[in-house]
């Protein structure tokens, strides 16, 4: 067992093919046949070059998000507001000595400074990455929990519970996410504007709105899987043995649902990253913290003179969303090679 683990992807890669050794009953061949489906999938994923590049990109962004504060201190930059007039010319464009568009990059502000506000771009970019990933991750966690719970209940209990949950799922699928976010944003800001915890409330609201419009797909998927699994012998055996329902659900059903959950979670993340930036771009996402979407809006009006300012958040969003999306596709292919195009 341990020898196969240290052997890494090479060994795992070979095991889906015919046994390579002269004698298939040697110790090594035996230890390989004991691999779980998840590890076989991992092996397939690691052999997929696009997936590895995407994984590296995602890891890069995750590290940036985690160490945003450290990186900012390292580069000596921060998101504090400054007095703009001292850094900008009369059009609101940074003066040449402070960096692009007319000057060279400086060490004090590696990404340049923003037009109109003269804040540091690198600090805003790093914080934007952090907020984006933080909100997307939280929303994914909440949506996954809601989706799994409702899907399990609907599929396993059936009857009236199934009817009600399926109706709620269809109901939520009808509602357009963007309009719901647009409707809820002014209400929340109206209610909590003067609250000292406004920043936290806004983030929580955004996470909840994203999650509440992202769980339906997973719930449907889980329900379908459970419907077919619950008639299988091992579930019947567990019930005959008198296993309590919650144990049947968690111990018997859940491990069989791991693959669909992993796939849909990995495709939820890019959707939420994209949605977060999109809402911020429209001005109905987070407004009290830096976000790539906000920078995008501000940069639009300076595009002709200072296009670099726009490319920074834009490339951030594209790279992260694209990497997460392609990684999600690769994970799906790895778990179920039949779907590969």
């Amino acid at each position: 067992m341990s020898s196969a683990q240290t052997a890494g992807p090479e060994t795992l890669g070979r095991m889906s093919d015919e046994p390579q050794g002269k004698d298939p009953s040697t110790k090594k061949a035996k230890s390989i046949t004991g691999k779980s489906p998840m590890r076989i999938a991992m092996g397939r994923l690691m052999r997929d070059k696009i997936a590895v590049v995407c994984l590296a990109t995602v890891v890069f962004f995750v590290l940036i998000a985690i160490f945003s504060g450290v990186l900012q201190r390292l580069f000596g930059v921060d998101t504090d507001t400054v007095l703009p007039s001292q850094f900008l010319d009369l059009d609101g464009i940074p003066r040449p000595e402070y960096g692009p568009p007319y000057g060279a990059f400086t060490m004090e502000h590696p990404f340049g400074i923003a037009p109109r506000t003269a804040t540091d771009n690198l600090a805003y970019w790093l914080e934007g990455a952090r907020n984006s990933l933080q909100i997307a991750t939280l929303a994914t966690v909440v949506a996954t929990i809601v989706g799994i719970t409702l899907g399990l209940l609907a599929g396993f209990l059936g009857g009236v519970v199934d009817k009600v949950i399926s109706f709620i799922t269809d109901f939520f699928l009808t509602l357009p996410f963007l309009l719901a976010a647009l409707t809820i944003a002014p209400i929340v800001s109206e209610r909590f504007r003067d609250n000292p915890n406004y920043v936290t409330i806004q983030v929580t609201q955004l996470v909840l709105v994203l999650a509440f419009f992202g769980w339906m797909g997973l719930a449907r998927l889980i329900r379908g899987e459970v419907l077919s699994l619950r008639e299988r012998e091992f579930i019947q055996a567990a019930r005959v043995l008198g296993m309590p329902t919650h144990r049947v659900l968690l111990r018997e059903l859940m491990p069989n649902l791991a693959a669909p959950i992993v796939v849909s979670t990995s495709l939820m993340l890019p959707a939420f990253v994209s949605a977060e930036a999109g809402l911020a771009f429209l001005g109905i996402g987070i407004t009290s913290r830096p976000s790539w979407g906000q920078t995008l809006t501000q940069a639009t009006s300076f595009f002709n003179d200072y296009s670099l300012y726009l490319w920074q958040p834009l490339l951030g969003i594209v790279a992260l969303v694209l990497a997460l999306n392609l990684l999600g596709d690769a994970v799906r292919d790895a778990l179920d090679p039949k779907t590969r195009r």
Partner: peptide
Amino acid sequence: WSLRAVMQRDLPIVSATALFSAVVLIMAN
């Protein structure tokens, strides 16, 4: 229009567009 109404906190407009969209979507379904 509804985006602007959100910025100006003109809630009747926001609720009207939300209702309109919901009706359109339900009919489409």
